[in-house]
Structures are given as structure tokens and as C-alpha cells.
């Protein structure tokens, strides 16, 4: 009885799926799906190598400091970094006094309350503060940026596929809209106020090219600040902001796996020993 019912249900589901497939196949052949402009022109992030690539890679502190400088002088005007605190910068190799000075001199102030009047005011950030946001809220951010809200950058490299390469590609990927694109998709001209970038999901990005010229920042360590170099550095810095514990994680992982290999080897020998009688008896 169960089997007859089952066969009936099975015939229904399988049959209807097969009919759906036929309907879909006919539609697919008679009206092939039209490729979209994103499908045709979106590009995967460029290949770029970082010191932290590979399972045992580490951050390059000098590069992180340079990247932080780019963030400070360029990105931080519009983008927040709300999950990172000034105190975290110690991991970049700054000492306590330097961290304190960076916080104190930060261009954006931390919201506070006037102790005398209780009214909203601001104060200089201290190391325990998180990076203050450039805009008080999303409405203010949208109003100041042509209705596009600059996303928080703390987790950006983890929030995109191949995030580090993505950030680098996006920054260096601005270009004029290809002629073939306009020929094939005449309606897809980049709207006024947006910028064409094939590494961005929908190809047109509200952010203007943030790094437009070599030497936009001046590096203290003598590294030549080409656009390419600055883009790599800021991508490395944002990888650190997204995964500050990367080096701890890999160190702990190495120790754990070495330990487990030995322990598992012993467990295997123990297992063979215990079974030796049974296998001998059988063989």
C-alpha cells in the first residue's frame, strides 16, 4: 500500500518536473536568454600578490602603516571604519604614544556630551575609541554623496569574493566605458555622476576614482607612492582591519595540526595494536 502511494507521488513529482523541464527547454531554445551587460563586461578581480597570501603568509607592518596612511588621507573623508579602535593600531607597530597622537590628531572628532550643558558636542578621540564616523547617520551620508552611502570599510575585504584583490582592482580599475559595450548595449551608458568600473558588480559606481595621481600621499618610508602601490597598500590595510587576528590564527593552526598529526599517528598505532589479535586470528 505504501509502495503504491509512493509510486503515485513519485510519478507526480518526477513527471511534473519533467514537463516543467520541457516547457523551460522549449522557451530556452525559442527565446534564448539575453545576456546582460554585467554578464558580458564584469571582470573578476586582478591577480595581485600580498605578503599574507598562502597558508603561512604574514602581514607586512610597513605596508599596513602605508595603507593606513592612505586610508587616513584619502578614504576616511567618506568611509567609516567602525569596528576598528585606535588602540588596535598597536598591531601595525605604533607605540602607545604614537597611537595616542594619531587619535588626538584625527580629523574627525568623537561625538560626546558637553559636561556643562548636556548638549551634543565632540571631543578628541582617545586610543580606546573606535574610529569616528565621517557622517552622523545614513541620511547625512547619502545627502553628501549624491545619494550613495559610502559603506563601512572594516570588513570590506571579507564582504567580497577575493576581497583584497577586489579592493585593489576596484581602485585601479576605473576606465572609460568600452566602445563595444555601448555598441552592444546602447541603453547602458554610464549615468551622469557615476563612474564606469568593470570590477564593480553593476559596472557603474558612485565613488569617483579615489587615487587619481601618483604622489597623492607622501610616504614616510621612502616607498614611491604610485597609484598601484597606494592601492595595494590600502588593500593590505583593509585586509588587516577585516581579519586582525590572521597571524594568531595561522600560528595556532600550525601548532594544532602538528600536535594532531602526532596524536593521530599514536592513535593509529594504538588502534592497530588493539586489533592485532583479531587480525592475526583472521589471517
Amino acid at each position: 500500500m505504501v509502495r503504491y502511494g509512493a509510486i503515485a507521488v513519485g510519478l507526480f513529482f518526477a513527471g511534473w518536473l519533467f514537463i516543467s523541464f520541457l516547457i523551460g527547454a522549449v522557451a530556452y531554445v525559442s527565446e534564448p536568454p539575453v545576456p546582460t551587460v554585467e554578464h558580458e563586461f564584469h571582470e573578476a578581480p586582478k591577480h595581485v600578490s600580498f605578503s599574507f597570501d598562502g597558508p603561512l603568509g604574514k602581514y607586512d607592518q610597513a605596508q599596513l602603516q602605508r595603507g593606513f596612511q592612505v586610508f587616513k588621507e584619502v578614504c576616511s573623508a567618506c568611509h567609516s571604519l567602525k569596528f576598528v579602535a585606535f588602540r588596535d593600531l598597536a598591531a601595525l607597530g605604533y607605540n602607545e604614544a604614537e597611537v595616542k597622537a594619531i587619535a588626538k590628531q584625527w580629523a574627525i572628532k568623537t561625538p560626546s556630551v558637553d559636561p556643562a550643558t548636556g548638549e551634543a558636542s565632540t571631543r578628541e578621540p582617545v586610543p580606546s575609541d573606535y574610529f569616528p564616523k565621517p557622517f552622523a547617520n545614513n541620511v547625512a551620508a547619502a545627502a553628501a554623496n549624491n545619494n550613495a552611502i559610502p559603506p563601512d570599510l572594516s570588513l570590506m575585504t571579507k564582504a567580497r569574493h577575493h576581497g583584497s584583490a577586489y579592493v585593489y582592482s576596484l581602485i585601479t580599475g576605473y576606465q572609460a566605458q568600452p566602445a563595444e559595450l555601448l555598441k552592444e548595449f546602447p541603453d547602458s551608458k554610464t549615468p551622469e555622476g557615476l563612474h564606469y568600473n568593470p570590477y564593480f558588480a553593476n559596472l557603474n559606481l558612485a565613488m569617483a576614482p579615489p587615487l587619481s595621481a601618483d604622489g597623492q600621499v607622501t610616504y614616510g618610508d621612502g616607498t614611491k607612492p604610485t597609484v598601484d602601490q597606494m592601492a595595494q597598500d590600502v588593500a593590505a590595510f583593509l585586509t588587516w582591519t577585516a581579519e586582525p587576528k590572521l597571524e594568531n590564527r595561522r600560528r595556532a593552526g600550525l601548532a594544532t595540526i602538528l600536535f594532531l598529526l602526532i596524536a593521530t599517528g599514536l592513535a593509529y598505532m594504538s588502534y592497530q595494536n588493539i586489533w592485532a589479535d583479531k587480525k592475526k586470528a583472521a589471517a
Partner: peptide, 21 residues
Amino acid sequence: EEPYVMMSQVAAAYYFAHFLI
């Protein structure tokens, strides 16, 4: 999107057919 939907229709049909028929 196609052709994934068509493929999943065939694969799902086999799943039901396997257990029930």
C-alpha cells in the same frame, strides 16, 4: 537562471524517481 534551472529539474526528477519508483 538557465541552464541551471533546467538541470535541477532533471536532477530533482531523478531524486524523487529513485526513492519513490
